[in-house]
């Protein structure tokens, strides 16, 4: 990743403040990592764009080539508002009109960059912790290890052991990874300065993959009893074999609804947190536009207080969501691996 700062060309957008756009820009994914805007100059970290189109093959270049969406590079550009694919990268034909077929876009977007950054931090942190653990073997822990050990023990004893039972050890690496991945991404998302602040866990693609992992772990570790309960539930026969297998349908639906609920809960909570903070901050600019600068000074005090409050609330929510996701995953795994009742 290249972190060179590119002061870009002057933006052409109208100077009127659009709160909706402001909020959306802050929570949406982007091909560049916007740092700040001075006047009309946007400063952002360019991120790699990786495209594959049937006509042009592979293309890899930095997003700074698009000049914040104003320029065309190698027949690609970011679709402007009004286009059916607004915000996405589209391919242009020789005459300059957008092709209907979108190129495959595997770009390192802001979310992916934040994801990679926090993954590196998590890997470094916990492998370092593991080394510390081996160094102090037989002695009392200290420092960071002392701080994180109770959390690991909490996940092991109060989440995994109590939900899964005797076979909990097999699932510990997955549950711990999920817990700390969500927790650290949630907390990083609250720090507004790059390389933090990417809305990773508030991105539905990310939570979808997390939920998918839980789904696969649950399904692959499900025992005979678990599958029997789905395809031949323990209910009166008339509920299983009337005109159509009602109970089986419900059971199979619940199999998929569980991870979907996991996905939506985490995504919605984190997205909402980010949105509320940006909404409170955008109040300053709305009042400034509506009633002049004096009103905005007054409102800014309130806005900042509320934003701080919501941020602190989000710290709490970060922990709760990491806990809830891990706990529910553990419960689903526990349901799939428990014996006859």
């Amino acid at each position: 990743m290249c972190f060179a700062l590119l002061p870009a060309a002057r933006a052409n957008e109208s100077s009127a403040f659009d709160a909706g756009k402001f909020v959306m820009e802050h929570v949406s994914d982007a091909h560049e990592w916007h740092l700040f805007t001075v006047g009309d100059v946007h400063v952002s970290i360019p991120l790699p764009v990786i495209l594959y189109s049937k006509t042009g093959g592979f293309h890899v270049f930095l997003s700074s080539r698009f000049e914040h969406g104003h320029a065309v590079w190698q027949n690609f550009r970011i679709a402007q508002e009004g286009s059916p694919h607004a915000g996405k990268i589209v391919e242009l034909d020789a005459s300059g009109t957008e092709l209907a077929a979108l190129p495959w876009d595997f770009s390192i977007t802001k979310t992916v960059a934040g994801l990679i950054f926090s993954a590196i931090i998590i890997i470094l942190l916990f492998t370092w912790l593991a080394r510390r653990m081996q160094q102090i073997a037989g002695h009392a822990p200290s420092g960071l290890l002392n701080m994180l050990e109770p959390v690991i023990l909490f996940v092991r004893d109060d989440v995994a052991k109590s939900s899964i039972g005797e076979h909990y050890e097999r699932f510990m690496p997955f549950l711990l990874s999920v817990f700390f991945f969500i927790l650290i991404n949630n907390l990083f998302g609250l720090i507004p300065i790059a390389p933090f602040g990417a809305n990773v866990t508030g991105n539905i693609g990310v939570t979808l993959v997390l939920a998918l992992f839980t789904f696969f772990v649950t399904s692959f570790s499900g025992n005979r009893h678990y599958w029997k309960e789905i395809f031949n539930p323990d209910v009166p026969v008339w509920m299983k074999f009337p005109l159509f297998p009602l109970m089986q349908l419900i059971e199979i639906m619940s199999m998929f609804i569980k991870p979907i609920v996991l996905m939506v809960r985490l995504f919605a909570n984190m997205l909402a947190g980010h949105m509320v903070i940006t909404v409170f901050l955008s109040l300053i600019f709305m009042f400034s536009a509506l009633l002049g600068p004096v009103a905005s000074y007054g409102v800014s005090v309130l806005s900042v207080i509320f934003s701080v409050f919501i941020t602190l609330l989000d710290v709490l929510v970060s922990f709760i969501q990491a806990y809830v996701f891990t706990l529910l995953s553990a419960l689903y795994i526990g349901m799939a691996t428990s014996g006859e009742h």
């Binding site: 992916v112 993954a119 690496p173 997955f174 990874s177």
Partner: peptide, 19 residues
Amino acid sequence: DYGTIFWMCVVFGITVWIL
């Protein structure tokens, strides 16, 4: 977004494996 899903699968999978 499929791009995000793809990268998330890769990054999260590697992370879980290494961890």
